[in-house]
């Protein structure tokens, strides 16, 4: 299985980032809400399972933005976001769902 924690640690090393803390952070998607804001100033958030989000979800942050593609289930890579992270779902989620991130505090 793809070792995302190893990938994250390698990334941080290559980018000369010494984290103060590495932990999981969760976002709950609530039925009825389509827009979410996560504050990640002086932080990096790695979205470790992008397939948790519906296809067409738009994530905008100060370093990276992404539209969740149709073939997301086949994508193994993980990406990081920072600053104000805005998550815009294409539609209202039918049930509550938890999205996982690895949070790196700088």
């Amino acid at each position: 299985m793809y070792d995302y924690l190893n990938h994250i640690n390698l990334q941080l090393e290559q980018r000369c980032i010494e984290p103060k803390l590495q932990q999981f952070r969760y976002l709950s998607l609530e039925p009825g809400l389509t827009r979410y804001e996560m504050k990640a100033y002086n932080e990096i958030l790695f979205l470790i399972k992008p397939s948790q989000l519906p296809v067409g979800t738009v994530i905008v942050s100060e370093c990276r933005s992404r539209v969740i593609p149709t073939d997301v289930a086949e994508v193994q890579g993980i990406e990081d976001f920072s600053g104000l992270v805005v998550i815009q779902l294409p539609g209202v989620p039918a049930k509550k769902k938890t999205i996982e991130f690895v949070q790196i505090t700088l």
Binding site: R35, K39, N42
Partner: peptide
């Protein structure tokens, strides 16, 4: 550094908070 603030309605007053790098 960018700070984005969404305004939804005419006349709305939106508080925001952020952190400098």
């Amino acid at each position: 550094q960018q700070v984005r603030v969404q305004v939804k309605d005419p006349g709305e007053s939106v508080r925001f908070s952020a952190e400098t790098d």
